[in-house]
Amino acid sequence: MALSEATDAGRAGPTKKPTRLFKNMASKIAAVPMVFTALVIFVGGTVWTIVYSFTSSGLLPRLKWVGLDQYERLWNSRKWLVSIENLAIYGICSLILTLVIGFTLAALLDRKVRGEGALRTIFLYPFALSFIVTGLIWQWILNPDLGLQSVVRGMGWESFTFDPLNNASLVMFGLLIAGLWQGTGLIMCIMLAGLRGIDEDIWKAARVDGIGTVKTYIRVIIPMMRPVFVTSLVLIGSGIVKLYDLVVAQTSGGPGLSSQVPAMYVMTSMFGGQNLGQGFAASTMMLVSVVIILVPWAILEFGGKKRG
């Protein structure tokens, strides 16, 4: 490839730069780590996992084809179905609440409030912390004997019960509280940047027409911020699929199976259960869900207009 380009450049006359061969060589050599990462790790790794998800790999990967057996087993496994259901509950709530809270906070901060800088710092700092730290903090706050529940009971409300981490039907919401705490600041920041990008004249026009503030946000501003919302959706969506560390730290998947998530299923079957095929099939399903989120976005984003 380099050679043919070089000869092309040789013939191309004075408009082309004279040392095209060297220029390309240096650039290509410099790009070797990138090409390796893109082709071997990202493409190669993904293809490898997909291919091996159709084999009977157990303790070690081996190429013995079993067709869709692993997927059949996967979708018949109660643990996997519970994981999917948990992630769906967490995902839907997280998506809606992150967008609502993120936008509300951004809109409030955009009302030229005092102490905006300090508030923004407070809203965003959890995003600097890891999911492990997040999970452990909230595990402590939600501790039924010494945490929030006992404090409220101590204030005189004896029957107050708030113990999501030990209640199978509420545990995903316990995780949600922590997940929202960690992640909404980021979305708020993105939304705030979007709001700041909106022309002041829009507000003036709305005011002249006598449209109320809340109505202006809903009818005018939010439709104008569609790209920002789409970016946020993609970010939140791809983050939800990866949900793992938080669960490990906060609940370890318990009580029972009640806070199992797909990523955890993958990890236990790959590294704990010596059931590689299941791990590969489950991680391929995770990939499929990301594709389902990304493809419509990519079509929306890159389909109409071409960008450099």
């Binding site: 082709l39 993904t46 990866k242």
Partner: peptide, 30 residues
């Protein structure tokens, strides 16, 4: 210093950022 195919590799890199890490974990172990 764009070269032929550089945008393709960049595109792969960008898509790769969205692939769940679990998908690539075992191949990396190998």
């Amino acid at each position: 210093w764009k070269f032929k195919g550089s945008e393709v590799f960049f595109g792969i890199l960008m898509i790769g950022a969205f692939i769940p890490y679990q998908v690539m974990l075992y191949p990396i172990v190998i």
